[in-house]
Write a protein that binds this DNA or RNA. Structure first.
Lengths: 193, 193
DNA sequence: CCCTGTTTTGACTGTTCGTTCCAAACTCAC
DNA sequence: GTGAGTTTGGAACGAACAGTCAAAACAGGG
């Protein structure tokens, strides 16, 4: 048998994800991807198919790492109520401490591609629906633990938190100013009172 | 003196605005614009300059009509507290009644172009800042009129409403489902209690 | 009715896009 | 070593892109 792949599939996919995250789908050319992924044009097509397939794989990876794994970690380290507040705080920390003002790939994609691409829309919608479920679950559990008042409506409030979270992500890409972001997070906490 | 222009400048600009609104900047080609504006390629360049200049003019028009004029109309017809609630309701009505699921051009642009274009970012930031001011002014006036409780912090709450409003606009483009949108609007009202 | 100057028109430019392809370089089994 | 099969780099493809240009169509003033 001949040799195996010389480049790291996952590492290359992460690089592609980063490029799409920072610049968007349309604005990222295959030439950009060839350069930033560090692999050859031919290898890129042989491994990932066309540009759209590569994007979908990158989007799925983002959803897995930055939504699924991230939520699991936030839940594991916090009480229900603190998990919600920590979720907002970590988004702000990413902007303020790490200076990453690229927002959220799911949200960016929701605006750029969801309206005109059903398959991509499905991935985005599922990710956002899971975020909503996370908020709802935390509210339910927080109420069981007497951390969150009983008059808070789990469904409405979870959706409100989703809206605020998306707004925070948009603002962190276009107006990444700490006081503004802090105020938005403070209002998320206010919805739980 | 020879003749004047045969086409209607404002009408053509509105058509261009609509195309950018529905499809985004990158995804709208000059050919699309030529067809939807109903004028010739050369006339387009002679009248509006290049694509970016046309977009900026369309964005300014959007900001003027769908933000400035719209806010003024909402204020004129409502008490301060009702103005805030009406603003959210009208966004939902546009989706549910008129079926317009293109979101908000300012928000769409905030994600697509603001991070990499200073002049466009300035227009978007100003529009969003004015939205924030609208919410803050309504809260101030609502408190003077005893419509909104005194414990509501005008600055924080205005920013929270801005975040919710942006989230609502994103969701109305990617998941235009009435119950979801209604819940988000309900949480906006909850911030004023 | 022709002259003047602007607008309209559609063909045309050079560039960049996503994608394909092939020969050379290379690694492993034999 | 040698042969088999993969990766590699770069050239090349048609299509689509933003932008240009010169000639035709036109309305008014003389």
């Amino acid at each position: 048998m001949p040799w195996e792949k010389q480049f790291d599939h996952d590492a290359a996919l992460s690089k592609a994800m980063g490029a799409f995250w920072a610049q968007g789908y349309d604005a990222t050319s295959m030439q950009d991807l060839v350069e930033c992924m560090g692999i050859n044009r031919g290898s890129l097509y042989a491994t990932f198919g066309d540009k759209r397939s590569l994007f979908i794989e990158a989007l799925r990876r983002y959803d897995s790492v930055y939504r699924e794994d991230w939520i699991a970690a936030v839940i594991a380290a916090n009480s229900p109520r603190a998990a919600i507040e920590t979720a907002f705080d970590q988004v702000i920390s990413a902007v303020v401490d790490a200076g990453s003002s690229d927002g959220c790939l799911l949200v960016n994609t929701a605006l750029e591609l969801s309206p005109h691409d059903a398959e991509i829309s499905e991935i985005v919608d599922h990710g956002l629906a899971e975020m909503e479920s996370f908020f709802r679950d935390m509210i339910d559990q927080g109420q069981d633990a007497d951390e969150i008042p009983a008059h808070v409506d789990p469904v409405d409030t979870a959706r409100g938190l989703l809206g605020l979270f998306i707004g925070l992500r948009v603002l962190s890409r276009s107006r990444p100013e700490e006081p503004l972001l802090r105020s938005v997070a403070a209002q998320a906490a206010a919805l739980l009172r």
